[in-house]
Amino acid sequence: MAQIFHPSANLVAKATIFGAAFIAAGALWIGDRVHRSPYITQAQVAREQPVPFSHKHHVKGIGLDCRYCHGSVEEGAFAGIPPTKTCMTCHSQLFTDAPMLEPVRESWRTNKSVEWVRVHDLPDFAYFNHSIHVAQGVGCSTCHGAVDEMPLVWREHSLNMDWCLACHREPERFIRPRESIFDMDWETPIAWSALDGDTRSILQAAGVESDPVLQADLGPALVEAYGIVTAQLENCSMCHR
């Protein structure tokens, strides 16, 4: 019986075996990229809502505080969305015939909920308490991005576990003074004069005197002062209870 393969096939076989590793690695890499892409995470993708509510207009334009509508963000485990009544506080008098607002008026008339589309949703096996984050110095924009610049809201970050862990491992990189949680323009380095009294005392106690104050100085001082135990934050059962 004649040889089926020419001797040169050996080389092809070796190259294929060698290449398989790259193909497999490439496939995994593509899979990972897809998994982290907005296609899966929905990060940076604006959601369609029954009413095209603009945070940009209400926050940047009108100057409403986050808490005017999101009343439970400081005390509640769940941040919540406002009831129709909150909308109607102003819109029973303003833009009363705008077609855009008809679903809100209908909800008010019929006592049926407006079916808002949820933007931030963690998997059900992750425990999350909104109030503790607010109480310990995680500002609105740290997680939610520049909501005051969003005509329609999108999810700023992936909400993947590695995103959570980035802060749970090194909170000092993200933490800000409690008094500045709702400041949508907060950024470090920050001028000493822009800080509140409590934070100045905390910095003085920590021996920080630079002006402007860097996150590298501010973060660790706040973590210490707020009693944040970083080792505990990395505990599996902290979130997976």
Partner: peptide, 11 residues
């Protein structure tokens, strides 16, 4: 299934 368990979340 584990992401969206039968329990109800707020709202």
């Amino acid at each position: 299934d584990m992401h969206d368990q039968p329990k109800v979340e707020p709202f």
